[in-house]
């Protein structure tokens, strides 16, 4: 599977930093995903009140999301978030998607931006397990701190 990550500006005025992950599977099938890193929405602030102060959460916390690129080609209201289990990835492909796609985008963001914390909340247990593995493996090399204390809730937090 070939995975490429590009910086990306979505059509229209959309806040946040975006990346485009382009994937060509070994069988030739292509798919794309948009990754976005935006300020943590207000409804998620209370998740972190037990460990961080409110000012830091409000001003310096960001969240990572990814979406299937088809959101730009669907009629309004048709597309809903698709859990990774529906992405028709094998385990190996999903690992490559996380390691060579999502993580590459997030680590690029880390290198080029100031942030207090970046939060990821995968919907899928397998994806959460992979996030954990990739974040642990790269922690020392890339110099961030990985707060695993919310793992039970599928929340992954990295800090500078």
């Amino acid at each position: 599977m070939n995975v490429t990550v590009n910086r990306y500006t979505p059509p229209g005025l959309v806040e946040g930093t975006h990346y485009l992950i382009s994937i060509v599977k070994d069988v030739g099938v292509e798919c794309k995903f948009v990754v976005e890193i935006v300020r943590l929405p207000e409804e998620m602030h209370p998740f972190f009140y037990d460990q961080y102060n409110a000012d830091k959460i409000e001003n310096d916390f960001y969240v990572v999301n990814f979406f299937d690129y088809v959101i730009f080609k669907q009629d309004e209201g048709v597309y809903r978030y698709t859990p990774v289990v529906n992405m028709k990835f094998t385990f190996k492909e999903m690992r490559e998607f996380v390691n060579d796609g999502l993580a590459v985008a997030v680590f690029d963001y880390i290198e080029n931006n100031n942030f207090g914390a970046i939060v990821a909340i995968p919907m899928d247990r397998g994806l959460s397990w992979m996030y954990n593995k990739v974040l642990r493996e790269n922690e020392q090399n890339l110099g961030y701190n990985y707060n695993q204390s919310y793992m039970e809730q599928h929340i992954h937090v990295i800090e500078p």
Partner: peptide, 30 residues
């Protein structure tokens, strides 16, 4: 996530484009 999807897809429709601007390739650090 669903709210963001709606927002992003509506922004694209408003400006009449399906495709954004693809920038430079990011080098892997993982």
């Amino acid at each position: 996530k669903n709210m963001r999807i709606k927002l992003i897809s509506e922004a694209a429709k408003l400006c009449g484009k399906e495709v954004g601007e693809i920038g430079e390739v990011v080098s892997p650090r993982t």
